[in-house]
Computed example of a mutant assay.
Amino acid sequence: MIPFFPRWIWSWAVFLPLVAGSVNAAALLSLHHGGVTHLTGISTEGAIGLGSGDVALLVHAIGVIALFTVSCAFSAWLARGPRWIPSLSAGALLLAVAALLVVASSVLASTPWLGVMICAAAMGLQNGTTSLVTGAVLRTSHLTGMFTDLGIALGQRVWRGPVDRRRVAVCFTVVASFVCGATGGTLLYLRWHAFALIASAVVSAGVGILTLALARRHATPVAQGGA
């Protein structure tokens, strides 16, 4: 069962998968393969490159996996604190995601592989941050776990077992947001090309600013009580 969590988490569940979906769509459209948010597919891509002797495909997969993983490690190093509590470090990391997406938008058209690598780093930061703060309840960059949980809930419903309604609501929210983000990101990419990432950066920055504001509000009573 998912524990009760504060309402502000819903802002992450709605808007951050939106960002991930749109960024992944841009990465897929720019290179016509791969992506940056689901490392199962990227690992398979690397294995295909290894088995077929496609060095470029293998190097691409290794680069995406490495940058995503290192960025997750960086988020773990910086985003320290209790679960379910908005923190200044989490807000700063989401602003860093926005900054990376702006940089990626400036190079994606001329150097697609580099732009995709920067997108991978951004998504690693985002997913690492949300996983740390929520105890891995909320993962915003991929949907395999969400569909698994929905399937389990469906099976439990069929045999009239207990269903975690909060988990189902989170899964539906993340899935719908990711799909909407990927759809909207595709439409923006087809019109604006690499600059479509700017819209994703704006959303990420907005969530980061909201998180910073919530962190300051959460810290104020503690500071006053200590005074």
Rank of each mutant, 00 (worst) to 15 (best):
H60E: 10
I62T: 06
I62Q: 13
G63E: 12
G63S: 15
V64Y: 06
I65Q: 05
I65A: 02
L67I: 11
F68L: 10
F68V: 11
F68Y: 08
T69Y: 05
T69E: 02
V70E: 07
S71P: 03
A73Q: 11
S75F: 06
A76Y: 14
A76L: 12
L78K: 15
L78N: 08
A79S: 09
R80F: 09
G81L: 07
G81C: 11
R83S: 08
R83H: 12
W84R: 07
W84Q: 08
W84T: 10
P86V: 06
S87T: 15
G91L: 09
G91V: 12
G91S: 12
A92P: 09
L93K: 07
L93H: 04
L94E: 06
L95W: 01
L95M: 11
L95P: 02
A96W: 11
A96H: 07
A96C: 14
A96F: 06
A96D: 04
V97F: 00
V97G: 01
V97A: 01
V97E: 03
A98V: 01
A99F: 06
A99D: 05
A99E: 14
L100G: 07
L100S: 09
L100R: 00
L100V: 03
L100F: 11
L101R: 04
V102K: 00
V102F: 00
V103T: 15
A104F: 06
S106Y: 12
V107M: 14
V107R: 10
L108N: 01
S110K: 14
T111I: 10
T111A: 13
P112Q: 08
W113D: 13
V116G: 04
M117E: 11
M117F: 07
I118D: 07
I118N: 09
C119P: 05
C119I: 12
A120N: 04
A120Y: 00
A121G: 08
N127Y: 01
G128I: 00
T130I: 03
T130P: 07
S131E: 02
V133G: 03
V133K: 01
T134C: 02
G135E: 12
L138E: 00
H142R: 04
H142M: 07
H142E: 02
L143C: 06
L143W: 08
T144K: 13
G145D: 08
G145V: 10
M146R: 02
M146F: 14
M146K: 03
M146Q: 13
F147M: 11
F147T: 11
F147R: 12
F147Q: 09
F147Y: 15
F147G: 09
T148W: 05
T148F: 11
T148I: 15
D149A: 02
I152Y: 08
I152C: 10
L154Q: 12
L154V: 15
G155S: 12
Q156P: 08
R157P: 13
V158A: 13
V158K: 10
W159V: 14
W159L: 12
R160C: 11
G161Y: 08
G161A: 03
P162C: 09
V163C: 09
R165Q: 13
R166P: 05
R167E: 05
R167V: 03
V168G: 07
V168Y: 04
V168S: 01
A169L: 15
V170G: 05
C171V: 01
F172D: 05
F172L: 14
F172A: 05
F172N: 04
T173L: 05
T173A: 04
V174Q: 03
V175D: 09
V175G: 03
A176D: 03
